[in-house]
Design a protein around this nucleic acid. Structure first.
Lengths: 359, 359
DNA sequence: ACACTATATGCAATCGTTTGCAGGAGTCTT
DNA sequence: AAGACTCCTGCAAACGATTGCATATAGTGT
């Protein structure tokens, strides 16, 4: 439809009695073009509302100024904040961002990868689905020498640049904190262990237990996608048994909230009967009663870091010869009502400082 | 950088001893191409991992298959849900979505409009910033005959297709509900009245008051951007005076949460001393204690509706000759603890049905 | 007057895909 | 056997911007 005739560089050239090359160069402020010509060109651009055609330009240069972003979903605090950071930062470099959601479906993800390649994005930033185990769709980016950066949910056994939160430190800090409050039966509500971030948090959990010489109890570990529904089901299982845990460490805040809700239904008081900690420091963790202890991931910083890495790769500051960068962003435990036991330890009021960079 | 030589249609043509036209037509399953040729082409496409170049294609057809979306920010329930709906729906039609955040800055918004035009999106969907009053940046879309759809925050005095929630009905329903609970001094925490959605909610509020013959009291109305900080300040002002209101209707849930928080600090019990209602039915409204009554806007449906309108425009099903479409999506009041007064009226447990379509 | 340089511009090809038109080969009709 | 028709395929010109190379003009130095 439409096929509106466009006002192009050629039209300007014709009107001015110069060639298209001259106009093109005038617009890009080429030094070989006289000031007078530049001014005349700019005037006409103004007058006729000439618009640059990025398609033509990208085609000719085989290079666009759009970066692709694929993530599972952005309707939550962490992912949407990362996306915002990336877009804002990229904008400063003159790049546009094309945000696409995979809805946690590997098929959708694959389609998006192909679609973004088809529009020849200059680079691609990805947080994979929970279930992506075939990363071959991304091969084309390496093959075409187009920068590819993963963050948060990064591939395993697939060579790539990655930006990660310090999930091990986060899992360790949260568990340690619960142990310090006197808990010894700490249930773990983990995401799928096929995913590296959950593995790391799990390992942090194990390490903290070991440090306190608390024997590991497999029956306290639940692992599945941390949706509200799943988490409610597991919480029910955890809290309706006979041998109740004295704390639950949930690997995201949606799950932690589910635990709190379930605990209320079971007449369990938090933190008197049960301590709870979550992950991501979702704004919801703060407003709920009781407020929930959580691990801050600094998503904005994470997005900025991923963007910086992307820019470095685009500007070839980093050799791409088989060397893959792995960046870490710190985490910080924010202790709140859900884990504060009166008289136990000294927990800062506004959040206990457990910056993982100190590790 | 890179300038990797690409594997193109010409390469396939050469390898097969046919012309590029034939390959192009084979790939688009043109009826004039023999099955044998099509098969041979597809085999080679597979073998060499040929990738369609959407840039070249779009340039040639002066038409891309990307739709632009500009919104103030997506780090909240309502906007991110709308965006998700739009992307999912568009995907079904073979279109990609380019999501861009204006951060509520008119300058940024303008830049994004231009950038999206530069990449010749096939259509543009917009929820404007709170402060956009100059819509001339959008002129180019009308002039180029590129479909433009606004939703939620739509322009005033600018001819365009719009998709709106029934904000009048929402404001009316929430206020009426508070009145039915016996409240007579209902404070209003409104967004800027330069924005149509807030005007409409305000008018709904006024209409309900009038119906109950409650005199309008200007001193109960606060109007400003509904950020957490602003809302806390206004809540403080509202609740620290001597003539307290008996209810607050906040025009988003962030503000409603601020009211609840401030009320707690003032030792006011909700709903015994103060009733509270919000807007948007953010998930936070449900998990907070007390849970907050709110107006559900059905953002997913709204996104789908905006997408359908866009598709109709793209397919020219709708004449664009100066006739502008305006679609409404219904709203529904969800009554919760924050507004349930024991023994007053009959309020459904899981949400009072006040579907605005019944209006 | 000549060679040389600096400055400003134009020519034409290129990026990869699409499509109107033309045309060749084969089949069918009368 | 000539015309008409069908079925495939190719030619070449777009789409709009960019850029290496060639060139024209003016200015400088000897």
């Amino acid at each position: 439809m439409s096929r509106q005739p466009q006002y192009t560089i050629k039209d300007i050239a014709q009107a001015l009695g110069v060639s298209a090359s001259t106009v093109s160069r005038a617009l890009s402020d080429h030094p070989h073009i006289s000031d007078e010509t530049k001014i005349r060109v700019r005037e006409l651009v103004q007058k006729h509302d000439y618009r640059h055609n990025a398609l033509a330009s990208s085609l000719r240069n085989s290079k666009s100024n759009t970066i692709g972003l694929i993530l599972p979903r952005l309707s939550q605090y962490f992912p949407s904040t990362v996306a915002t950071a990336i877009q804002n930062k990229l904008h400063g470099y003159g790049y546009n961002l094309m945000i696409c959601q995979s809805n946690d479906s590997p098929e959708m993800e694959r389609e998006l990868v192909n679609a973004l390649y088809a529009s020849r994005v200059a680079g691609l930033i990805v947080s994979t689905t929970l279930y992506t185990n075939d990363f071959s769709a991304f091969d084309i980016f390496a093959k075409s020498n187009i920068p590819l950066v993963f963050y948060d949910r990064v591939p395993q056994n697939y060579p790539a640049h990655v930006v990660l939160g310090d999930d091990y430190a986060g899992g360790y800090a949260a568990t340690l904190h619960l142990l310090q409050q006197g808990c010894r039966r700490i249930a773990l509500l983990s995401g799928p262990l096929t995913c590296r971030i959950y593995q790391d948090r799990y390992n942090g959990y194990l390490a903290a237990l070991k440090e306190y010489a608390v024997p590991f109890d497999q029956s306290l570990v639940y692992s599945h996608e941390l949706t509200k529904e799943n988490a409610l089901k597991s919480s029910e299982a955890i809290l309706s048994g006979t041998a109740l845990p004295d704390a639950v460490f949930a690997c995201n805040d949606t799950a932690a909230i589910a635990v709190v809700k379930t605990a209320k239904q079971h007449q369990l008081r938090i933190p008197e009967d049960l301590l709870v900690a979550g992950y991501s420091n979702d704004p919801r963790a703060e407003i709920i009663t009781p407020s929930i202890t959580s691990v801050e991931q600094f998503p904005y910083e994470m997005g900025e870091k991923a963007t910086m890495l992307m820019m470095d790769l685009l500007q070839n500051k980093i050799t791409q010869q088989g060397r893959y960068i792995s960046l870490n962003t710190p985490v910080k435990l924010i202790a709140r009502e859900s884990s504060r036991r009166a008289g136990v330890g000294a927990v800062a009021e506004s959040g206990e400082d457990m910056d993982s960079s100190a590790q």
